[in-house]
Design a protein around this nucleic acid. Structure first.
Lengths: 181, 181, 181, 181
DNA sequence: GATGAATGAGTGTTCATTCAT
DNA sequence: CATGAATGAACACTCATTCAT
């Protein structure tokens, strides 16, 4: 029987993950040391290691969390009533990315890079992407498009480029995308 | 007078960069140690440091090189006579990404992630992207599209997604993109 | 009044010692962590610490126990009726060592090494050895030997070598010892 | 081409091994930290690691060295002209053990214990023991004994007991052994 | 000019033990 | 009385980089 409730345990885990999150978003997975995470969490080294067995586990959890949060945001977007039009959807995705804080999308960019060498993250990314495409397909079914699935795929494939445009290239070229899309 | 020496110097520099390249593509920038690079180059530690003052400089150079090589590939594509149609272009970009070796695109993914924290790389990425858009715009001018610049922008923004789809998501959904685009 | 409680206490203590024993025999005193012992015992950390104040105390207890058990085995051997002859005794000691499980003798070897730095264990080892020599002397008095004490001493001194021969050197050279002894 | 001569390299390696030796003799293999060894050597951490890839490698080397030194001592004893008699040999072995410094024999005791869990050390111990028995057999051939090999085996098997008697039990019972042997 | 031995600061992780609950 | 979460100090080891030769 644990002295700490399951709830409290989960809470602590989230606290550590959040602390790591901030470090990861600022410095990247590898330029963040465990000491950075430990200091940010306010716990002791072994306190952190009780909840995450290794730095890798923490990176994994952060990467997955970034995709989970993206799903949540998309779920909200896709669940709107009345369903957004094509233009509205793109506008809202862009707004979502541009809206501070941008921790989430910074970590997503790194998670994709990290997925190159970390099969567990790659798998998670695949799942995320598949679900996203499925949902977008449903939504696109309501638009006046010839092939909803194809349009959904294009949108989903565009996503990484939007993040990179925002963070690296000086901004998302919203106007142009509206016109071309 | 030191003409040959200058040439040799450049040659050496490229050799080191190529050696680092292989390591970076395999393990990422941060999981690659300078010792890895030094061993791969076959030179001595100080031999490497004579040509690159720090690991950061090497990462920078590798990131820039990845963009330079991409430019080269696009230059070839865009310079074709007769100029490729919209569909042809997309097909050739996909073919270029899918064709081994995939070192180049692996490093590009990492370079974008690294650009989040490294202004010099971000700047370079911006330049690359601007040039790419300009060239694509010229090309798109020949297609039957309403707004060539918008189409070029869409294509350029799509690029990161294509790389990630290839490396992480199990393949580029070529068919769907053809239809939607 | 707390009679039963006292009994239970002793029982618990033995349970912990037995659990530690298994770990120590497998991994040695120092490559065994308290967490290993705690996990093996099935108790909580503080449960274990209630019975043994420190790892050192546990090592001490295990070392002493190994000598106590050796005494028990020798007591049985030496108490045989009719008393064993010289050859029989050696044979039985060898049989005792070679008979699995060999936890006991593995720990004895480690206890001697540990006794180099741990006066309390050294003292215990001295006591054990003195008693062993005394008993063997009594027994040797019945044999046809010139100096029973000398023979007993030789036997007692040989003991570590027998254990090491068994565990490290690939077996006790029984035949040769029989001839020479 | 190394900047440091092969000779100097070997010298440094021996220096580190000697520094570790002192620590190991005092505290045992496992209660000695690499920092202890590093401090004793006067080098930096990575300086030590250039010569020994891990603590395990250092323990191995120390264990082997202890056996090598024992061989050297025995070689000298066994090479004496005229060859020692039985009694002389035993006396000299005892003298050798009792003569300070006793680092060597302290480490030997620990090496045997360590050999329980470290096959490489066990193998080395076996080799050492086999050679020792062979040499002793040759020597015993000159004595007036029925079975030289058996006597040699008894002597070799006795060795661990002598060390433990010296270090742990308060002294080697020389007199008794002389009589019984 | 080129070498590679050497470094100090830092890495991720585990340790024996305690104490709030 | 018993728990197991928490700790601080230590652990073995690696890093990017420099400099005596």
């Amino acid at each position: 029987m644990p002295r700490i409730s399951e709830e409290r345990r989960e809470q602590r885990r989230r606290h550590i993950l959040t602390s790591a999150w901030r470090c990861f978003a600022r410095d990247g997975f590898h330029a963040t040391s465990m000491d950075d995470v430990i200091a940010a969490s306010g716990l002791s080294a072994s306190g952190v290691y009780r909840y995450f067995r290794s730095k890798d586990e923490l990176i994994d959890a952060a990467g997955r969390e970034s995709m989970r949060l993206f799903r949540e945001l998309f779920d909200r977007l896709l669940g709107q009533r009345p369903p957004p039009t094509r233009t509205q959807l793109l506008a809202e995705v862009v707004a979502m990315i541009e809206e501070p804080p941008d921790d989430l999308s910074r970590i997503a960019v790194q998670a994709w890079a990290e997925a190159l060498r970390r099969p567990s993250l790659a798998e998670h990314a695949r799942d995320f992407h598949a679900e996203l495409r499925a949902d977008l397909t449903t939504l696109a079914g309501r638009w006046d498009v010839e092939d909803p699935e194809a349009v959904a795929t294009l949108l989903a494939t565009l996503l990484p480029g939007l993040l990179i445009a925002h963070h690296v290239l000086g901004g998302i070229p919203t106007e142009a995308l509206f016109k071309a899309f």
